[in-house]
Design a protein around this nucleic acid. Structure first.
Lengths: 213, 213
DNA sequence: CGCCAAATTGACCCCCTTCAAACATTGTGG
DNA sequence: CCACAATGTTTGAAGGGGGTCAATTTGGCG
């Protein structure tokens, strides 16, 4: 995705829908889908978009010939999975207010990377219905939650334009963990892994693993 | 993971926890983690486990020299992501009963592949607390939900052993979609992609994409 | 037998949903 | 320029699904 917004979403037979993730500029989409006969989710654009495509049959070739690109793809995949895991935490364990705050901070952070945020405000080409489907809430309740955030002065909304007045506090409300987005990437390390150089193993963040292998 | 059960999970500062996914025999775990400085989730074993490890610094080499293995890794990554997306749908849009039924069918299906299911029953080395953390419910409510499933005769529970009496109906309750697990894989296609052969592009399942790229 | 984690059940309450209606915004055609 | 749809937003009221609190029971195990 070079420019524009899209969503990846799934739906139940009866119409209930869940937005799995937002696709923003810089994101790689559909890398896996092309390898299988059928996709397991839908993609819908929210704005005009500009995409760059590459032939799926040459992924292998790519991995062999372009270690830096391969590293980028791997990094993208890892980040996507990290985002999904964090969203699972949101849907499973965060309240409506926390979820909403968290998502807004996530979008702010991700959009910052691609220079789509200026002075804490950015464009959210999204209806409240889509927000509801992303956060597992009803439209009505997303509306009330946004109102609470507005009333508390944390954000401002004018149409599709949102201004985050206090990122710190919003991140605090959403229990936002700065690490999961892998904003501080380790590109060198990645590239080395894909070009065959040696390096030492990584450390896990929480040590409560009690594997007895 | 060669044998045993584990869970990948995340937690909030105040202790609330979300189980992101179960790690079962045949699953590949931590492929991404090794590429980064810090992991974004924890792993805890639920039983004695047996794992096979490979040096993370040689992933690139692996992709170059062993197309079949590379294909397997890509397939694993795709499936993992599909499972997370489906779980998001569960947490966001399914009721407690539906979620529980869905998870049980998912585990049944995944365990079937590695021959850990006989006559519809298998071992669930899991406390109700873990189930609750996986489904975004309270312990109390998971207990009541399991009771409902038992009372309706869909499942039976004896300690850690669970028997699924009517998979069809349980899958129906959970709105289970047989496709997302990619049980019918396309290994040939995958391998071809990673060995550089040519093939045509895939079709997306839902056609409401309205990209104007 | 006694301990402790896990399972179970009851009672009460609250967050969020549902239903409903009013209101705002945007675009379209006459 | 103005009806007018159509879509999206906002707010109120009422109800339900699931949470919290608390107590009891069960089961594994030294």
């Amino acid at each position: 995705m070079r420019d524009g917004w899209a969503i990846r979403h799934k739906a139940l037979p009866d119409g209930r829908r869940q937005v799995v993730n937002f696709v923003l500029p810089g994101d790689i989409i559909g890398m896996y889908c092309t390898l299988f006969e059928s996709a397991d989710h839908s993609v819908t654009t929210l704005t005009q978009v500009e995409v760059a495509s590459f032939p799926p049959e040459r992924i292998g070739e790519l991995f062999q010939s372009f270690p830096r690109l391969a590293a980028a793809l791997a990094w993208s995949g890892a980040r996507e999975e990290a985002i999904l895991a964090e969203r699972l935490l949101s849907l499973g364990r965060r309240t409506a207010l926390e979820r909403t705050a968290h998502l807004l901070v996530e979008l702010l952070r991700r959009l910052s990377i691609v220079n789509m945020v200026t002075d804490g405000h950015f464009v959210l080409p999204v209806t409240q219905e889509i927000l509801a489907d992303a956060l597992g809430l009803s439209i009505v309740h997303i509306n009330r939650t946004l109102r609470r955030l507005r009333d508390s002065g944390l954000i401002e909304l004018n149409g599709q334009r949102i201004t985050v007045n206090d990122v710190r506090q919003l991140a605090s409300v959403g229990q936002f963990d700065e690490l999961y987005l892998h904003l501080i990437r380790a590109p060198r390390r990645l590239e080395r892994a894909f070009s065959g150089a040696h390096l030492h193993t990584g450390t896990s963040r929480n040590g409560e693993d009690r594997a007895k292998a």
